[in-house]
Design a protein around this nucleic acid. Structure first.
Lengths: 122, 122
DNA sequence: ATAGATGCAAAGAGTTTGCATAGGT
DNA sequence: ACCTATGCAAACTCTTTGCATCTAT
């Protein structure tokens, strides 16, 4: 079974406090404040374990390494700030995807990413 | 200045004939039919050169290595078949993106990816 | 003949894995 | 005391780069 370690707690806490998708490096940096010397491999292992357990979900953006956020959130999309490179959740969906699909194709899901400036950087 | 080599011609031809975004490996496989022994490094170098020249544009999908397609196409999005993993262009756009953007954020652009089965795999 | 392009192999960058040890239970 | 989780370093994968050779001009 899993053990409560300082490292694991710090990594989980980083995601809870951030309340937005975090990249592995971001999580490492945040968690290392609580646990100096925290190894990057430990962050990878714990994130992968948390994804296995269904606690976290990967958030993949085009051309970037994956970020992770709490799983089970309602259908939503993501906004990436082109200045600070942070990613934020965006509730809602434009819908009307089916109209775009070519004849004979079957639509199962979709991903939408918005790009611009966040409130702090605008 | 650039030279016309068999390799470069074969790589350009692969993109022209495909008429859809190709991954580096796909382009290599296709071009190698015309030029056996074609090195993967040559494919990378030529694709990067073609992007520099503005002939090709990268098409990045979440969590995948980049594909490339002819540049200068009208605003469109992409459909990825979950079975054969090919990517197709999809004309049109649902619009209504601005309604999703949080207050204070500035929207500059967006990317939409549809997932499902293509006509051949459906 | 000259200089850019190619192919191979080595170098990088990011992620994963093996192993001895630290540390939860 | 046991046995999982950690940290380090080596292994992997994908892409880029160095270098000798080839080849288009």
């Amino acid at each position: 079974m899993e053990r409560r370690t300082r490292q694991r707690d710090a990594i989980e806490a980083a995601f809870s406090k951030a309340a937005r998708p975090l990249a592995v490096q971001e999580a490492h940096k945040l968690a290392a404040k609580a646990v100096p010397g925290l190894g990057i491999a430990t962050v990878y292992r714990n994130i992968n374990a948390l994804v296995e357990e269904g606690v976290l979900e990967p958030v993949e953006l085009p051309g970037e390494s994956p970020r992770y956020e709490a799983s089970g959130l309602a259908h939503h999309h993501h906004f990436r700030c082109n200045a600070c490179e942070k990613v934020f959740d965006v509730p809602g969906c434009p819908g009307a995807m089916k109209a775009l699909v070519p004849r004979g194709f079957r639509l199962d899901s979709h991903e939408l990413v918005l790009y611009g400036r966040c409130a702090q950087c605008a």
